[in-house]
């Protein structure tokens, strides 16, 4: 059984000008211990997909339809208190900015200890010892002394290490890491990702790694899912998606990666802009920018179908080709 299943989820934000679908029917599976890269340009719906998994979509946004299942059991319709017990304990999350993710007026130790006591039922002494172990685990020197320090006494990279410790300390089986290194110095990014990867591999923790950085994906992920305008356009093994991408959008993304050795491996944008989410055209959302668009691409939406090691949603493949 998969660890996590997203079954055709639709996430909607009611707005004054009518509902806005940020995620328009997305399905994917994740195995235990697997690292899935989630890529796509800004506004594609990556963060909202992560929030749908953790149950943290900000009201009035909501999951309009579809299901989120953890080990086969639905979690998208749980009462708030039940979902709270899952957060941190079963599904952890890491956000972008280590400078603002830590509470400035409590020591890092106190934040770790609280989190473990809430989920693991430790007494204070045991939690404190575990907190020291965790700081050591994420590579913070002199952990015993550092435990009683405040976040502002740590550098950005050190703070993100603390954030990782906090996300992992209740031993979740799944981590949603939403651009966990974007805010960090380039020289620190690789170390933090290597740390995250090592810890998740050791503990068998699965990861959904949201990032703009294809280099990061290549080094970290097992599989890659590509999102465009609220939908999954391609998913497959990392080697295939990076070396032989199927979907024209993915090809555009890969072509725009500078050669290895270049420090800036961010995606440069493909010509044109992603369409607005509000009044979607009937056909393929990528059609206006697609170099291989055909006539029926503008009127008929391509459904995801098996291709290569995964799936692709494009009229170039499968029976509609």
């Amino acid at each position: 059984m998969s660890l996590l299943e997203l079954d055709n989820i639709v996430v909607e934000f009611p707005t004054r000008r009518g509902p806005l679908e940020a995620v328009k029917g997305l399905s994917l599976d994740l195995d235990e211990g697997e690292i899935l890269g989630l890529v796509g340009e800004s506004g594609a719906g990556k963060s909202i997909t992560g929030a749908a998994i953790t149950g943290l979509i900000e009201p009035p946004g909501l999951i309009r339809s579809g299901e989120v299942r953890l080990r086969g059991a639905r979690i998208d319709n749980l009462p708030p208190e039940k979902m709270r017990r899952i957060r941190g304990k079963e599904i952890g999350a890491i956000f972008q900015d280590p400078l603002t993710s830590l509470n400035p007026v409590y020591t890092v130790g106190e934040q770790l200890i609280d989190t473990m006591r809430v989920h693991l039922g430790f007494d204070h002494k045991a939690a404190r010892q575990r907190a020291i172990d965790w700081l050591a685990e994420v590579g913070i020197p002199a952990p015993e002394a550092r435990l009683d320090q405040y976040p502002h006494q740590f550098s950005g990279g050190m703070r993100q290490r603390v954030v990782i410790a906090l996300a992992l300390c209740a031993e979740p089986k799944l981590i949603i890491a939403d651009e966990p290194t974007t805010a960090l110095d380039v020289s620190v990014q690789a170390q933090i990702l290597a740390l995250l990867k090592r810890l998740c591999r050791e503990n068998g923790t699965a990861v959904v790694l949201v990032t703009h950085d294809m280099g990061v994906i290549a080094e970290t992920a097992d599989r890659v899912a590509v999102m465009y305008a609220g939908r999954l356009v391609e998913i497959g093994d990392v080697k295939q998606v990076i070396e032989e991408p199927l979907h024209p959008y993915t090809r555009g993304l890969m072509a725009s990666i500078p050669q290895i050795g270049n420090r800036d491996r961010r995606l440069t944008q493909i010509e044109g802009a992603m369409p607005g989410l509000r009044n979607p055209a009937p056909g393929c959302a990528f059609a206006p920018r697609c170099p291989r668009a055909m006539e029926h691409c503008h009127s008929l939406r391509p459904a995801p179908q098996d291709a290569g090691t995964g799936q692709v949603a494009c009229h170039l493949y499968g029976e509609t080709a």
Partner: peptide
């Protein structure tokens, strides 16, 4: 930091 604390349950 409140969002992150919430995400930790």
């Amino acid at each position: 930091y409140i969002k992150f604390a919430k995400a930790r349950g």
